[in-house]
Computed example of a mutant assay.
Amino acid sequence: MRALTAAAVGLAAALALVLTVTAAGPPSGRTSPKPLLTTVPEHP
Rank of each mutant, 00 (worst) to 15 (best):
26 P>A: 11
6 A>I: 08
14 A>F: 00
9 V>L: 12
22 T>G: 06
30 R>F: 08
44 P>M: 14
36 L>S: 11
15 L>V: 15
31 T>C: 05
29 G>V: 02
5 T>E: 07
34 K>Y: 07
3 A>R: 02
17 L>E: 12
16 A>V: 13
42 E>H: 12
42 E>K: 14
6 A>L: 08
36 L>C: 09
29 G>K: 04
7 A>I: 02
13 A>E: 06
17 L>I: 11
23 A>I: 07
16 A>D: 03
22 T>C: 03
20 T>N: 13
36 L>E: 11
12 A>I: 10
6 A>R: 03
33 P>T: 13
19 L>S: 10
29 G>A: 06
21 V>S: 10
32 S>I: 07
22 T>D: 00
14 A>D: 03
7 A>M: 09
27 P>M: 09
38 T>P: 05
26 P>T: 00
8 A>H: 01
43 H>F: 09
30 R>N: 01
23 A>L: 08
42 E>D: 13
2 R>W: 01
9 V>N: 00
39 T>W: 10
18 V>E: 04
41 P>M: 07
40 V>L: 13
39 T>A: 09
37 L>G: 02
27 P>R: 14
12 A>S: 11
12 A>L: 14
21 V>G: 11
18 V>W: 11
33 P>N: 03
21 V>Y: 06
15 L>T: 15
35 P>N: 08
29 G>T: 01
41 P>A: 04
43 H>K: 04
2 R>C: 10
34 K>F: 12
38 T>I: 09
25 G>T: 01
29 G>C: 04
10 G>L: 05
10 G>K: 02
1 M>D: 05
11 L>W: 00
